[in-house]
Design a protein around this nucleic acid. Structure first.
Lengths: 257, 257
DNA sequence: GGGTATTTGTCCGTATGTATT
DNA sequence: AAATACATACGGACAAATACC
């Protein structure tokens, strides 16, 4: 085994102090200058060590204040395999699911737009190029913490066929999927979730308060009707540090996770 | 909008050059000294800019060679919602699934151990503290690229009840779940997948060739029998840069992703 | 195989800016 | 306003990895 560079050794020592509990979640680390003296090093080397820990989410730095052990957050668990006739945490369904775990969720009013969708969405909705669609964007908090951002895309023809609520900047209480069934008899009988992970963009960094090198889940949910036609695509972005997912297949016992 | 620091501006300019196609995937960037001159900066500032790009997976550096635009990999898509009576990409099932996409998969021989499982596994398998279990660890490559690492845990009593193949360091052709059904009539009727993302540990970094700040998916699959008893826990680790997942619920048309 | 040039990695010192208390 | 702590930026020196002759 070769000798590791100094800044990695220091990072490991700090990690050990954290994981041993000597530095509890939320506690402040020694300042960079103190650490420099403790480890007989230079401030820049200490900073390199701390950078390693921050990009692993172990500590966070606050200018003017200090460096702190990242407080542990209680992750929220979302079930992806639910009722195929419902949306992804939509409307009341989502709120009650969250409430079960004694948490207080909130949803912003949707921002509704008519636009040409991003390529990934176009492919899944199977609409021709330059076709406009309705998009509904909303974000959710749990216990005051930003938890997810979501944009749903629907074909424009749903509006002309009578599903006019899709264009209104108001929450659809029963969920958009249920609304479509009741308003214009478009029924979702199944969906496909496509799960990826990536780094957050600028918007997501500021909304979630994430570092540029953090990780978010991005899940594309495509809903299908009886004929196998895509009736909507919902894109949800979830910070990986506070979200986890469950998929149930077949017969499983009632949970405690 | 405030003025951004120089190293971030440089990072953005380099990103623009990459995304414009001026620097194609696999292409070499100018050396740090050349970039220093191009942007009238210092080498350390250039290095800070490049660090931002590497931790976003946009470029990679090779000591002694240079900095290169990260080659795009064709991600492999795994379906989590499959047959509840089968394992996760187990045995022949996994291999044929991969083959469909014209890729050539391979699986290592399992490393079999009898051990006390990690806490997370213990909780899911619902075994008492200090209970030993059988673990079977294997890793998979696709087209020569390391793709996933997997460890399955089974109760020891399965051995005494006759499922002795579990202890053998050989691949179980039909998959361990099918084997359990046939050998000792323990049948998996459903499973729960629990999906998280985290940074890779040392082992995973070296096996997958990942940076310390990369992201891996970690999926815990708990299989249940007719009585709702957990019959095994399988932990699979997948690098996020080359893996994506699909979950189908309800009736969905035949795919193209 | 050895030697040399090139390129990135590590480490240090210093100065100044910005955020917070 | 002053002190404290992290952030940015530059310069320099040497080490380590790689490629090439």
């Amino acid at each position: 085994m070769v000798q590791q560079p100094m800044y990695q050794q220091i990072a490991e020592k700090l990690r050990a102090r954290i994981e041993a509990g000597e530095l509890a979640p939320g506690a402040q680390l020694p300042t960079e200058l103190e650490l420099r003296d403790q480890y007989s090093s230079s401030r820049n080397t200490i900073r390199d060590a701390i950078k390693r820990l921050t990009s692993q989410g172990l500590v966070e730095t606050r200018p003017g204040q200090g460096t702190f052990v990242t407080p542990r957050v209680d992750p929220f668990v979302s079930e992806l395999s639910g009722d195929p006739t419902r949306g992804p945490g939509e409307g009341a369904a989502y709120l009650s699911e969250v409430n079960k775990s004694n948490r207080s969720p909130s949803v912003t009013l949707p921002r509704v737009e008519v636009q040409i969708p991003p390529t990934e969405v176009k492919r899944r909705l199977r609409v021709p190029p330059n076709t406009q669609v309705v998009s509904r964007h909303e974000s959710r908090h749990i216990d005051g913490i930003p938890w997810s951002m979501q944009t749903s895309f629907y074909p424009m023809e749903f509006i002309t066929r009578g599903a006019t609520h899709l264009l209104m900047a108001q929450n659809i209480e029963e969920g958009a999927v249920q609304y479509l069934a009741q308003a214009i008899d478009v029924r979702q009988v199944g969906y496909t979730d496509w799960i990826t992970a990536r780094v957050p963009n600028k918007n997501e960094q500021s909304f979630f308060g994430l570092a540029y090198d953090a990780t978010v889940f991005e899940i594309f949910r495509t809903g299908f009707d009886q004929t196998g036609t895509a009736l909507r695509v919902t894109v949800t972005v979830w910070p990986a540090d506070r979200n986890q997912f469950i998929v149930n297949v077949g017969k499983v016992p009632d949970l405690e996770y």
